[in-house]
Each structure stands twice: as structure tokens, then as C-alpha cells.
Amino acid sequence: MATGTTSSTPSSTPPGTPPSTSPAGPARIAHGVGSPGRAAISAPHLRTDRWWLPPLVSALGLAAFIGYSTWRAFANTHYYAAPYVSPFYSPCLASNCTDMNGGADWHLFGNWWGLSPALLVLIFPLGFRLTCYYYRKTYYRAFWLSPPACAVAEPHASYTGETRLPLILQNIHRYFFYLAVVVAGILSYDTVLAFRDPHGNWGHAGLGTLVLLVNIILIWAYTLSCHSCRHIIGGKLRHFSAHPVRYRMWGWVGVLNGRHMLLAWSSLISVGVADLYVYLVSSGAFDDPRFF
């Protein structure tokens, strides 16, 4: 146990530790809010509002996206409809991809990779979102109920948080941020390619161009609003006065960071919609409306 206290008080029994006598009622739990010495209340919580709604909505939203993206990642079909490429399949790192006419085709894995090429790419945005401070809050609450809501007792008998494996690995978030910047750059390139017609001529746009454009704006906004980005840009400094440019940039990232939750959800939805749009056009469900 890492206490390292400098107080003369023994860290294992700080003042305020309850007396050993137990006032517990018949149905009272013996840990957490039911610990000896605390107010004898048998209910694990007394909240009367709909505290369960936010974690439920979060769980359903995340489950829907996980289900959809898993299906699409393994589908290995209908991810290119010239000039649009699904964000799930770019860049293509294996040689079993559809030819994407100028797209980000870098066959680093050659032809030995027989599974869907999306699996090689999605690991990066997945890792970025999985270790994201906002998503951590969301899935700790929604799936692990740790806690399900504020002042609502969690069901676990013990808790070590992010002090040991595997959750201590959440600390590599900044490395996924670096990779997410690379992925966002490639998706930006794909969006530029979308300003062509299906034959590759520049200066055209359709509804798909708009979908990809909105998606990449939201992806960038989410990526740059990341807490690790905020730290790297300027948060780590102790003397803003000595770094006025970084201080200004830190302020801008801070504005985005204040909307991190909104951007996390909106970019998650937009990337799913962008993929769905490409899927529908590619599968012939409808024709891409062209603007010019």
C-alpha cells in the first residue's frame, strides 16, 4: 500500500476511523456506506432522481456503436464508393483492399493478412477512445458501475482503481493521441479526395463529401480537445508567462476541452454515419446526390 505519509498519524488508522462497535441494523451492509461508525442507513443510496438514466443511455449508445462497428470492421465489403472511402478502412495497410484510386493504400502488411484490413486500423482510434478520460468516466459508470452514479453505492467489494494492471495502462493515452493525430491526418486526406467525381476529376462534390467533411471536422475537434493534448500543448508548463504562444494555444485547446463530452459523442456518431453512408452508396441502396 502506497501511503508514504509524512504525518505522525498512522496512515492505516486516520482520525475519523469509526469505532469498532457496530450499530448495524439487521439488513445493513458491513462495508462502504454501511461501515461501522457511519450513519446506520440500510439503503445503499437515497437518491430519488433518475440517476440511472445517464449510465443507461451511455451503455446503450456505446453498445450500439460497438455492435455496428464490429459488424462493419469484420464485414470487409462495401467500404469504397468512388470517390468516398469509409473512415473504418483508411488507411489500407494490407494488399487485400479494394483499389481506392489515389486513396491511402500503403500495403505494409502485404498479402499474408487475410482478415478484414479495417482491423489493422481500428485498433488506433479504439485505443484512443478506450483510454480517453471522458470515455473512461462513461464506461466505468455505465458498464462497471464503479460507481453507477454519484453517491450511489457501487456493487464491488474491493477497489484498486488505476493503480495496477490492467487499468494502469490507461496512462498510455498520450501515445494513442499521437497515433490519433496521424489517423485524423489520413482521414483529412480522404476528405480532400472526396472533392472529386467518381472518375477522379477534381472540383466536384456530393452529399458524401459533406458527410466526410463534417466527420473530419468533428474528429479533429475531438482529437484536439483531448486532455493529453491540452497537457502537451501547454498544461505541463509552470510558467505560462515564459511561453506566450503555448499559453495561447493551451487556452484554445481548453475551450475545446470544455466540450470534450459533446465532441466525443458527436464524433463517434459522425464516424458511424460516414461509414454507413459509404456502405449504402457502395451497396447500391441509393445514389450519391451530386452538388456540382
Partner: peptide, 24 residues
């Protein structure tokens, strides 16, 4: 009363845990 701390009486709790942490 606050349910994370030992109760003294009625709505009053013993919050000295926090003072110990402050001294650390």
C-alpha cells in the same frame, strides 16, 4: 449526515479524516 464519514450525532459527522490527509 455525510455517509462517507463516521457520524457523531444526527447530522454531524466526524470529518477529521480530512484534516489528517491535509497534514500529509
Amino acid at each position: 449526515p455525510l455517509r462517507a464519514f463516521p457520524v457523531v450525532r444526527d447530522l454531524v459527522t466526524d470529518v477529521s479524516f480530512n484534516y489528517a490527509k491535509a497534514r500529509e
